[in-house]
């Protein structure tokens, strides 16, 4: 397959996957996902809201963007909060979610956007402390849980 043919095939694959996954999302009617929509005309960047569950973020609303690059599903999407979140796995500068699932070397093409969003919910409730990107938040979570809860809920309320 030539380079151009490969690129064209990749684009067709990407569009087919995105179309199918959006249809699946609509069909599955996940209660925790709201307002899933495309926000860029020429790029596949989606914005959506997550309604938190569990003890910590019960009914909190988080706004995120999901950047599905041209090489999806062979390369992982890029998931980013639209506002600050005090969380071990959220970069305090870029607000990017750093999940093991989204690392290039761990990524599997059969993983869907819905799988990514489910993983996001899991991470919000149970941070992955094996590779924190916000060291302060990880430290608080381990040694000073009260402080962590206080800071994270305060920051989350700020955007609700």
């Amino acid at each position: 397959m030539s380079t151009l043919q490969a690129a064209a095939h990749g684009r067709i694959v990407q569009l087919s996957r995105i179309r199918k996954e959006i249809a699946d999302l609509a069909k599955n009617k996940r209660r925790f996902i709201k307002d899933f929509r495309k926000i860029e005309k020429c790029k596949d960047i989606f914005q959506f809201k997550i309604i938190g569950d569990g003890v910590l973020y019960k009914n909190m609303i988080f706004t995120l963007t999901l950047d599905v690059n041209v090489e999806y599903p062979f390369k992982p999407p890029y998931l980013k909060f639209c506002h600050n979140v005090y969380h071990p796995n959220v970069d305090p500068v870029t607000c990017e979610l750093c999940s093991p699932m989204l690392l290039q070397e761990n990524w599997k093409p059969e993983t869907t956007m819905e799988d990514v969003l489910l993983n996001l919910i899991v991470l919000l409730n149970e941070p992955d402390l094996s590779r924190p990107v916000n060291i302060d938040a990880a430290h608080d979570y381990i040694h000073n849980k009260v402080e962590f809860v206080k800071k994270s809920t305060e920051l989350a309320k700020k955007w609700n």
Partner: peptide
């Protein structure tokens, strides 16, 4: 075609010689 695209990506982008199945 998808196997080919997946393996090509692993070889070129990730430089991996031990490649896992595509399924999560």
């Amino acid at each position: 075609e998808c196997w080919q695209a997946y393996l090509t990506n692993k070889i070129v982008s990730d430089a991996q010689s031990e490649i896992e199945c595509m399924a999560p």
